[in-house]
Design a protein around this nucleic acid. Structure first.
Ligand SMILES: [Zn+2]
Ligand SMILES: [Zn+2]
Ligand SMILES: [Zn+2]
Ligand SMILES: [Zn+2]
Lengths: 137, 137
DNA sequence: ATCTGCTATGTTATGACATTACGGTGTTGC
DNA sequence: GCAACACCGTAATGTCATAACATAGCAGAT
């Protein structure tokens, strides 16, 4: 389940605990969800989790989903090399699918060039129902 | 500044107040910002604002920016007819530019078809620096 | 050895965003 | 009248995130 993200970062204790918690869960967790699961390991305050999450996100080992105010482990060892990342969030089962798309990225770049906007970061999150849940229905 | 969105909705008092507040501001406002500006008009509780915002967003007269937990008036009378809407948010001046892009929409549709995902809603928000702020620097 | 700078950590309190629960008012259609 | 519905007002609560301050550990310089 856990993968290494070739950079071979070494994580601190809190960062490792948080990342393991995210890796153990296929669907997003809020910071407070994570905290609750780590009380047994000695964590007590939200900030301990948020600080670890900040680092993990900066390293590309985890992602924040803006439309959920929640976090997932990165599902793709190379994603931080790619540019724009998108997320497809199933509203039925909670599963998140991570994808990259060069066409969209190029298109956004074109739009930015045309309008003079300088892009620092892009959030792309689609909500709906995943293939598995559609079959089940 | 305010525009009508051809549907000619008629709004309730609270809805009108909230929409006017949003229209008076080029940058996004949080629900509590809006509340503060409307205390003089008699509003007292967050829920009064959130209820109005829910309706305005449903009508397409306002949009929620997930990455800011804030709201803007719709800048485009036709946007609710178009499919996907994107937002470019300037981190310097706060201004938000609303855009639609068929190529991106098509590309997402293709991705969805290929993976079997059924899209209900898409969030696309880009952060960066707008042309005006880049000139000024 | 100790001082300094840096990073990570722990703890408390608070700020910011959003919803639940309940009761009331007014309008529409029967 | 009366039921159904949409809106409104208020209080309390829930959820997400950060500020502010204090401490511990470690590496390199003096
Ligand atoms: Zn990733
Ligand atoms: Zn699903
Ligand atoms: Zn719009
Ligand atoms: Zn700007």
């Amino acid at each position: 389940m856990a993968h290494t993200h070739d950079g071979a970062h070494d994580l601190t204790r809190n960062q490792s605990l948080v990342l393991e918690t995210l890796n153990a869960q296929p669907s997003p967790l809020s910071a407070y969800d994570i905290l609750d699961r780590l009380r047994g390991a000695g964590l007590r305050a939200p900030l301990q989790v948020y600080r670890a999450l900040d680092k993990l996100v900066a390293m590309g080992l985890a992602h924040r989903l803006e439309s959920l105010n929640a976090f997932v482990a990165c599902a793709d060892a190379q994603c931080h090399r790619k540019g724009l990342i998108g997320f497809a969030i199933c509203e039925n089962c909670g599963r998140v699918d991570e994808f990259a798309d060069e066409v969209i990225e190029t298109q956004l770049g074109t739009w930015a060039d045309r309008t003079g906007f300088s892009i620092k970061q892009t959030t792309m999150e689609i909500r709906g129902r995943c293939a598995l849940c559609r079959e089940a229905a």
